[in-house]
Amino acid sequence: MKKMLMLLLFPAVLLTGCSSRGNVNEKAYLRAAAVDGDSVTFVFFNEDEGTVTVPLSDPEKAKPAAELAIGKEIFTGHTEIVLLGDCDREEVLKHILKKWRVSPSCMAVESDGKGEIILKARNPKRLTGIIEQAQEKDLAPKCDIITVLSRLLDGEPEEMPLLSVYGLESEK
């Protein structure tokens, strides 16, 4: 009986994700995203994948559309920064946290104008670097997704760094 059970369990190793479905090259790793009122922009770690802008306001629908556009599954767990434009910020952040499963250190910032333009003009690495430097100098508030979402859920005033194509802006 034990031998039969072992024979049945052995094929379970095929379910460990070691098949080609989990091949690193077959996924696009999201680095930054911008959610504007009428579009969602995706920027990936691999620069060859370019910047993809999808004309949909809902991130839930935008991700599958972006996957169709680039021909790869998008992995969102390493997203470093999210730019929030004219959108329902609380709902967008809830979705990103629960469905995209981003890292707790993912930054949530406000975009001055369309986030798509900022992401096309500036490298996400530079944007995160600007925020980190500003935080070290006490020029920008803490803006990890958990902190920002906590403030929104508590009904506190929004307190996010404001980014434009020129860099960090003073509060509006």
Partner: peptide, 20 residues
């Protein structure tokens, strides 16, 4: 998870997943 408890269905699992 204190700040986001109202949207967290499984707080202990979420706390482990948010740890970095």
């Amino acid at each position: 998870c204190g700040g986001i408890m109202e949207i967290t269905e499984f707080p202990v699992a979420m706390a482990a997943q948010l740890s970095q």
